[in-house]
Amino acid sequence: MTANTQAAISPFQRERTRLEELERAWRSLARSRLGLIGLFILGLVVFSAIFADVVSPFSPTAQTLSDRLLPPFSARALEKGHWLGTDHLGRDVLSRLIYGSRVSLIVGILAVAISCVLGILLGLVSGYWGGWLDDIIMRVGDVQLAFPFVLLVIAVVAVVGGGLWNEVIVIGITGWVGYARVIRGQVFSAREKEYVEAARCIGVRTPILLVKHILPNVITPIIVLATFSVAGVIILEAALTFLGLGVDPKTPTWGGMLADGRSHIFTSWWMTFIPGMAIFVTVLSINLLGDWLRDYLDPELRNVL
C-alpha cells in the first residue's frame, strides 16, 4: 500500500507520513480498550524482564530454608517481604516469577523471529518462482505438518538436548510452514500486479523486487500471525520445561516453577497457581494486542486468523 507510492515522496515527507501513521495507530489503540489493556500488561512484563535485577526484591535463587513454603500474603511472608510467598526451598516466588519472564519472552520472541525469517524467505521463493522449487518446499512443509507440532518439538529436543538456545532453534526452525504458506499465497497474486510488472520493466533486480517491492505488500498477515504465535510459543516453552525437556531446572522459569509446584500440589497451591497465572496473563495480553493489531492492519483477516 505504501511501497509503490514512496518513490514520489521526498524523504522529509516520508518521515512525516511515518509519524502520522504511528499517530493513527496510537489513536486506534487508545480507542480499543482491550488492546490498551493488553499493551499495558505486556509492557509491564517486558519492563520487569529487562529490569529484573532492579525490580525483583530478592535473588531468584537465594534459599532460606527456615522460610520454606510460606503462603502468599500470610503474616510471616509479609513480615519477611515475600509478597507472593516462598517455594519448597524458601526462594521468593515473586522474584522467580520476574526472572522467569526472561526465558519466556526470549524463547517466544526469538523462536518466532527465526520462523518468520525462514518462512518469509521460503514463501517468497516458492510463490515467485513456482515450479519444482515450490513443489519441494511445499511437500517438505506437508511432511513437517504431519507431525503434531508438540510431538515434533519434544522428539527433536529430546534428541538434541534441552537448554534455552536449543529450544529457540528447534521451535524456530520447525515453525516456518505457516508463514511460508501465507506468504506464498500472497506472492502468487502479487506477482501479476502492475507495480511488480512496472518494477520489472525498469530493471529492478529480482532479490530487490522481492524484498523491497513485494514483501511490504504481503507482510500484514505475517505480522498478525507472528504476534499470536509468540503467545503459543510461550505456552509451548513452559510445557517443555515443565516436562523436564527444556531449560535447565536451575534457571528460574515459569515452566520449571510449575514442575516444582506439581510435586507440592497437595500442600502448597500457590506454587502451581501463581506461575500458571503469569503465563495465562502474559498470553492473554499478547492475544488482546494481536486482536487489535489484526483489526487495525486488516479487518479482513478476522475470518482467517
Partner: peptide
C-alpha cells in the same frame, strides 16, 4: 472462550486436580 485459548492446558489440568 478467549480465556480458554490463553490458558496453558497443562496448567488447567493441574488446577482441576487441585
Amino acid at each position: 472462550a478467549l480465556f480458554g485459548q490463553c490458558i496453558p492446558s497443562f496448567w488447567l489440568g493441574l488446577m482441576l486436580i487441585l
